[in-house]
Every structure is written in C-alpha cells, then in structure tokens.
C-alpha cells in the first residue's frame, strides 16, 4: 500500500466526453489523492481509456472540469470564462504527467537509452551527460541496465513496456497514467511489468491504472473504480469492491474476470 495523503492530485468534476453523437463519458466525478494508486476497471468500451486520455489532454473533454495538482487541464480560466490553451501550454502541462500505453509506443528508431533520454533533453533542455546518467539509473530500476543499447524490436514485449515506464519516469512526473499496460503482453511477461509498477507505487507515485489485472488491483491499489457505459458504477477500497460488489453490473463483470 502506498502512503496517500489528503491533497487531491486529480479532480474530475462532472466530466463528459462525446465523439459526435456518441457520449463516451457521462458526468464522471472522482478524486485521486497525492500518492494514491487508483485502478480503473470495466468492460471494453466503458470509457476508462478515454477518461485516462482526457487527464493529459490527448482528448478534449466536452464538458465538466478536470484538474491535475490544482491546475485546470487544457483551459485557462480568467474573468469567469474559459480560454482554450495554446499547444505550448498544453505541452507544458503534459510534462508533469507520465503516460504508459497498451502498445508501448516506444520510438523504434532509437535505442532503449535514447528513448529514455529523448524527452528530458528536447523538452526540458537538460544537458546530455546528466540525462544519460539518470536514464541509466532508471533503466536499472526497471531491470534493464544491460539492454540500454538495444532497439525496441530486439526487446520482448515486457522489456519494451518497462522501457516505456522508464521513459515516462525520466520526465519526473507527479502523476503516472497507465492505459492497459499489460494487455498486449504474453501471459508470462505480465508479472515483470506489474512488479515494476508495484515498486513505483511503493515509492509513493500517484498512479491511475486502467487494467484487467484484478490481482494487481487488490494488492497494490488504494481505490478501485468500476466503470461501465461511460459512468462510474461503483468505487471504493479494492478488496471490498472485488469481494463484495454492491451493484448488479459490477457483480456480473467480476464473475467473468475473477
């Protein structure tokens, strides 16, 4: 369990998102405290990935407020009106929010080390020597010190995902988003990625994890949110939600995955 304190890191207030006439998120309100690990579970198409992508403004919310560390995402508020952010300002907000994708999305033309070094050098403008030392430490932290000079194509899926985690950590984010990080992995490679994530949680990182790994949710998460059809159906302490679901839809879903 990670040490959660009381400052909210992410606050979603009646967040909705539509693609055309298709309403994917319907008035989602939730709060993630600093240092908390929240797992989002639910059937595919329930809107959990979309919600995650709204948090770092990869998707623009249709209505409602979404803020990270007290800062409104994607908009500036002045004189009681909202102003759309310039791309530059949105990019600055994203620096502090790490994201890990289902399909890893490593840069295939760069080695593992170059993948990790890219953003700190280009975005933060840090010196190469310092960044490299830090990148090697991060790769060691995810157990890949010896694979630093490998291209992604020569790494297994689990190794690629661990590099992707190191790449996100290199920006020293205050929040980490995981979008089904183990769904594209062979079953025997899932464990190594979850181990890295568990260590990260233990170190006090605030994390929102979209996952189907109920074991991970039970063991690592401080809170669990079950979503279906774009709404939060049920949320609470993972062990309680998983062992004693109150809602019929939660029960039906859990009976299939557990």
């Amino acid at each position: 369990m990670s040490a959660a304190n009381d400052t909210p890191m992410v606050v979603a207030d009646r967040v909705s998102k539509s693609f055309g006439s298709n309403e994917v998120l319907k008035s989602i309100s939730l709060e993630v405290k600093s240092g908390e690990v929240m797992c989002l579970v639910g059937p595919s198409g329930s809107g959990k990935s979309t919600f995650l992508r709204c948090i770092n403004h990869l998707e623009v919310v249709s209505s409602g407020r979404l803020s990270v560390d007290g800062e409104l995402i994607g908009y500036r508020e002045a004189n009681n009106r909202l102003y759309e952010m310039r791309p530059k300002e949105a990019a600055r907000q994203r620096r502090d929010i790490g994201m890990v994708f289902q399909r890893f999305n490593l840069f295939p033309h760069m080695t593992a080390l170059q993948n990790v070094m890219e953003a700190p050098i280009r975005v933060k403008g840090l010196s190469k020597a310092g960044v490299e030392a830090n990148a090697r430490t991060l790769l060691a932290r995810v157990g890949l010190a010896e694979r630093a000079d490998y291209y992604p194509a020569h790494l297994s899926g689990g190794q690629q995902q661990r590099v992707a985690i190191a790449r996100a950590l290199a920006m020293e984010p205050k929040l980490m988003l995981f979008d089904e990080p183990t769904s594209a992995l062979d079953p025997e490679l899932v464990g190594e990625v979850l181990d890295v994530m568990q260590n990260l949680a233990r170190d006090g990182m605030t994390m929102i994890v979209v996952t189907h790994e109920m074991g991970f949710a039970k063991e690592v998460a401080d809170s669990l949110v079950f979503m279906d059809g774009g709404v939060v159906v049920e949320s609470g302490v993972p062990t309680e939600v998983l062992t004693n679901p109150q809602h019929a839809r939660t029960q039906a879903f859990l009976s299939k995955v557990l």
Binding site: F101, L106, A119, A164
Partner: peptide, 11 residues
C-alpha cells in the same frame, strides 16, 4: 501511437 507517445511526453 508514435505521435501520441511524443505528445504525452510534452514534446
């Protein structure tokens, strides 16, 4: 996904 990953890193 490549553009997304780069964007998410703040590039």
């Amino acid at each position: 996904g490549q553009e997304e990953a780069a964007t998410a890193l703040g590039m």
